[in-house]
Design a protein around this nucleic acid. Sequence first.
DNA 1: ATCCTCCCCTAC
DNA 2: TAAGGTAGGGGAGGAT
Length: 665
Amino acid sequence: SGMGGYMEAKIQKLEVQFQDKSCSNEQLSSIFNNVAIHVNGYTNPSCDELKTLMAKHGGKYHAYYSSNYTTHVIASNLPRAKSKDLKPNEKVVRPEWIVDSINAGKLLPIQAYLLVGSTTGSENQRTFNNISIFETSKNITQSRYKLLYYNFHYEVILLKCPYFLCYLSTEVFVPHVYSIIYCYYKLNKLTFSRNIAATTDSDFLKEFYANSRLHFISIWKNEMADFVRYLRIQLMGIFPKIYFVILVCHFFVFFIVYFHFYKKTCFQYFMVIHIDMDCFFVSVGLLSRPHLKGRPVAVTHHSNAPAKYQLIDIIKLFRFLISLVSFSISINGAFRLCNPTDTGNTLSSYSEIASCNYEARAAGLKNGMFYGKAKELCPDLVAIPYDFDAYKDVSNKLYTVLSSYTHTLEAVSCDEALLDVTQLVQECKLPPDTIAQHIRAKVQETTGCNASAGIGPNILQRMATRRGKPNGQHEVKLEEAEEFIRGNQLKDLPGVGHSTVFRLKELGVLTCYDLQQVSPQVLKNDFGNKTGQRLHELARGIDNTEVCQSKERKSVSADVNYGIRLTTHEELRIFLTNLAKEVTCRLKKINLSCKKVTLKVMVRHSDAPVEAAKFAHGICNSMSRSKNLDDYTDDFNIIMKETMALMLLLQLNICDLRGIGIQLS
DNA sequence: ATCCTCCCCTAC
DNA sequence: TAAGGTAGGGGAGGAT
């Protein structure tokens, strides 16, 4: 804007000239005889205007640069990359040279107008003078623009909402600003197919569920539990014999071990083996990418993104658009610029890491971490995409192997199971750790992925597994329990999550050792009877729950707490219809009917910004309302009607909805 | 006492 | 962009 006044005066003058003369083809002068210009990038006046000016003043305009015939390149801005390509005698001149020459009535020397090298000062200051912008659509909530900038195409969407969201680092907000939300460029210059799926799109649910790892983890667990149920009901009493022979042969080799073991333990308690695949998603992903073995690898959606979309220097673009679109804007907030040397948007990715291998964990990576953070911690990190079909396949193989050893197993998840081997140990006369070795080897052979195992009399085996990882196993005996648990963190106790850890900390309990010292009554007072008792027992390695082979399904639900952005009652109705259809479908699929409908919603917390950093739910309050039905039903119309009634009961501001779920019990 | 509703918590 | 689902256990507090 420094030269804004100057340019405005010139342009006004030009416009007057155009108005006077634009209808005629009359040549006004021959100032530009022997001059042939090529316009590079965005200029002011525009290339079309310059073309007209050249025509009216005796010059030539070359749409394409020709080293033989083009005498001057006109540009307002010369990026560093382009300046390197300049021929030694090539003249690059600012467009003011043309305007001023016309006003002066003669060809002015170009020296004062030469554009040499980068005009941008430093590397991280790109100006947007070189932009052409085309409005492509406009509606009430957003306007879309296409930008042509140094031959890259950008799509810009101006969202009319009261916050400006910057996807760069943390959440950055500028209140009361018509917002620029998305600025991407696509390396493929010609297509602009990227659309933000609206919550109400018919494909929204389908697409969301097709990409949600948590959704798959959930349904697979159910499927494996179904499989286990089937084993128990259909194959009751048929003991799997497939590997039994192998185990017995093994016995003869290790009979001394057996003898020793048998005398010592005398089968006083249950024998449970916990089998857990090592970094499941990554392991499966590496099956088809053996060349990546040994390198830090993570599974994330982000790996699909960087080639296609990249975040650009948003503040520069923002300023440009402010000048371009006559919005009245005041900038109150602080921007944080992305590192200009980060060519992709990897460092600012909010894509979560679903799974990372041990090479990556060595650099401090954890599952669930944002990819941007992970890449920062581990620049060599290789991101690979999800392959849900492959996970399912390996999961099936895993359960096929496990069920050939015993049918008394519990599906913990698609990659994790508990095997009650009490009977197996007695029948094949082998110690459980030998059986575990067997199973792990067989899993490796069948799936190509490593599994770890924990062996113990009860709940302890899960903790033991962690000790065995990666690709190993660990056994904890009942008499070692207290000592073993002491060496773990509170968070490692099964059933103890961050909330319990926090509450324990308030009690002054920081370690498992501390927990062992607290009286059960204190815990009961603070956590309630059952939870208190449970914590007390956990700390001592006491757990009487058996391996559970089958549980009746009590409920079916479908939740979406991602990308919910609804504005009107009609949109809400459409979304609820889609969701009710989905959940009804799931209910019918397992041949059940429901007696109760529960609606669960997440509502934006009043302190939370309208836009969260991720296109997700941000900080929310959750609420639920339920309705008991007179009769069991699996009828969509009834379920939909009740869902809508519950929704209306809550009297929510539709714009504040961030998550919706329907549960049928 | 026991049940019900509306939460919260946890696991993968 | 990235795709924060899903099922079950249990607690607080009110209703029965």
